[in-house]
Design a protein around this nucleic acid. Sequence first.
DNA 1: CTGTTAGCGCTTTCAC
DNA 2: GTGAAAGCGCTAACAG
Lengths: 339, 339
Amino acid sequence: MDVETGGRMRSPTIRDVAQAANVSTNTVSRALNNKPDVSPETRRRVLAAAKELNYSPNNLARSLISKKTGTLGVVVTDNANPFYARIIKGIEDVGRRHGYSIILCNTDEDSEREEEAIRLLQQKRVDGILITPVQKDFRYLEVLRNYQSPFVLLNRHPKNEMVDYVINDNAYGARLAIGRLISVGRRKIAYICGPSTISSVQERLEGCFAAMEAGGLSPKSLHVERTNLKMEDGFEAMQKLLENDRPDGVFAYSDILAIGAMKSILEANLRIPEDIALIGYDDIEFASMLEVPLTTVRQPRYRIGEKAANMLINKLNNKNGTEVESVVLRPELILRKSA
Amino acid sequence: MDVETGGRMRSPTIRDVAQAANVSTNTVSRALNNKPDVSPETRRRVLAAAKELNYSPNNLARSLISKKTGTLGVVVTDNANPFYARIIKGIEDVGRRHGYSIILCNTDEDSEREEEAIRLLQQKRVDGILITPVQKDFRYLEVLRNYQSPFVLLNRHPKNEMVDYVINDNAYGARLAIGRLISVGRRKIAYICGPSTISSVQERLEGCFAAMEAGGLSPKSLHVERTNLKMEDGFEAMQKLLENDRPDGVFAYSDILAIGAMKSILEANLRIPEDIALIGYDDIEFASMLEVPLTTVRQPRYRIGEKAANMLINKLNNKNGTEVESVVLRPELILRKSA
DNA sequence: CTGTTAGCGCTTTCAC
DNA sequence: GTGAAAGCGCTAACAG
C-alpha cells in the first residue's frame, strides 16, 4: 500500500510507521528488527501499523549503514549453457539459505563484458563475487583485487596466483577419457578443445598427453583441434578432422562440443562408436538421452556451485581467517554407448 | 584501492576524492556524472583523483536518492530448466543493454518461496519484476500489486485479471500437436500434463479438446494424465499409461516431460513413433539430438525473455502510459522423428 | 523502555 | 563555476 502526500504516491517509510504507531522511528526500527528493549505493547502497535501501511523496509538504506547488501555477484559465460545453469542453481540454493540473493551476469567469453560486470557488481556493492573468468587476459584479476570484497573462481583459475577457486581435476578427467579411448583400441586420437588461455582446456590437454604416454602412444600423435566453445564449433572442428586424417577416437573438451561433433559424425554416415569413439566432458542432463548416449567425464556441477558459494559465504563471515582455499573435485567417467 | 583511516581499511568515498582533488563533494559528483558547470581543469583533477584512489561510486547511496536501482527481479521456477535458462538469457541481454542487471530467484514451483522472493525483491527495491507465477494460489498477485513497481508475467497468467504478460498461444500450439497426431492416424491419444491450476496447462488442454473435435474424435476420449513437471514425472506418467489402455499417440506438456515419457516407452521396448507417436512442447536445444529426435511445438524462448524485458523497461520509462499489455506469441510445430 | 541526534554516501537545491 | 546545507531511509549511540 502506498502513502499519499499531496497527491504523489510513495512507498511508506519508517517514519510513516512511526507516526501511525505514535512512536519514534528508532522504536519502529527496533521493534521490526526484533531487538530487545521494546515493550510488548509497543511492538504490537508497531507491527500492526507496519502491516496496515504495508510497509516494506528499504534495504538500500539498511545496506548503506551495515555495508552489507546480502547479494552475491555471479559471473558466468552463459547462464543458458546447461553446465553453468546447474552451477548457478547450486549457488542460488546455498545463497538463499544463508540470506543472499544473486545478481547474474553473462560474459559470452568476452573480456570487456567481464570487466564491466565486475565493475557493476562493485558499484552495487555485492558482498562477494563468484566468477568463471574468461581468461583471454588477466584484467579481471586486477579488477577483482582492487575490489575489497572476497571472490571465488569457478572452473578456471590462473596459474601461480593465490586465489580461492573451485575446480574439478581436469588432468585426471582427461586421463580417464583418453585411457578409455585407448582401452577400446583407438590409436588415432583427437582432442577438440577451446582456446589455450583457458586453464581447464590446458589442464585437460596435459592429462591427455599423460594418458597417451601411459597407454604407449606418442603424445605427439594426439591431434589437438582448437576451436571455440559453442556447439557449432564442435561441429566444424569435427568436419575438419573428418576431412584430413580421420581419427578413430575423439575426446571433446565439453559435452556441448561433443554434441556438435556427434552431429557431424552422424551426418557423414559414420557410426559411433564403431568408426569413431566419442567422449565428452561435464555430463550435462541430456548426455544420456542423445541419439548416441554419450560416454563422458562427469563433473559434479551442482556441487561446484554449492561448494563455491559456501566458501564465499564463509569468507564473508570471516571464518578461516584470510587463508586461501582451493578445492579440486574429482570427476568420474560415465560409460555409455559412444565409447 | 582502499583508503586507510586509523588502521581500518574502507573503500574510498566521494569525500576522499574531494579531498584529494581539493574541491567539494558536490563538485566531484558533478564532474563524475558529466554534468555541465564544471571547468575542464577541475574535471580533470577530479577524474585523476578518482582514478588514483580507485574510486567506485556507491550505487546504494545513489539509488536511495534516485529511487532507481537499475535492477530487475527475475523469478522463475528453475533457472536450470533449459526452457527458463534461455528466457533468462533474453532478459539478461535486453536488461544489460538498457543498464539493468538482474537478480535471479528460483521458486521450484513453491508458492511460499515465490512470496518470499517477491518480498525480498521489494525490499531490495528492484525497479520491476519479471515472473513466472507458480499459480498454486493467487497470493503472488496480491503481493505484486501491493508493490508499487511494475511487473510482467512470463508464460503463465491469471484469467480475467488486468496484468501485463507475455505468453505463447497455448491453445494453438496444442492444436498443432494433436492435429499432427491425428493426421498420422492416431486415435487413442493422451495428454501428459501438470497441475490444472497452471494456466498454460489448461490452455493447452482446451486446445487438445478443440483439435480432437476438429479431427472427428470425441474430446472425452482424450486421456488426461496429470502429474508434476519434472522429467521423472513424465517417466512415471507414461508408465501408468502403458499399464492401462496404452495410447498410440502422446502429447506432453513440455519437452522435459516428453523426454521422461520417451525413456519410459523405449525401456518398455516399444517403438517411437511406430507404436507410440510422441510430441513435446518448447523445443529446447536438445530436442533435436535425442535418441528419437523429438517432434515438438516450438516456443520462441529467447524472444519471450526479450519481449517481456522490453515491455517492463518501457513501463519503467512510462511509455504507453498505464495501459495494460498482453503479448501472445505464435508457436510452431517442428516435425522430427517422434511423430 | 523510549526519544533525540548523528551519519552511512551520495545528489540536489540554492547561495555566492 | 563552486561550495554549503539538506535529506534520501535507515540504524547506532547515547540520553533520559
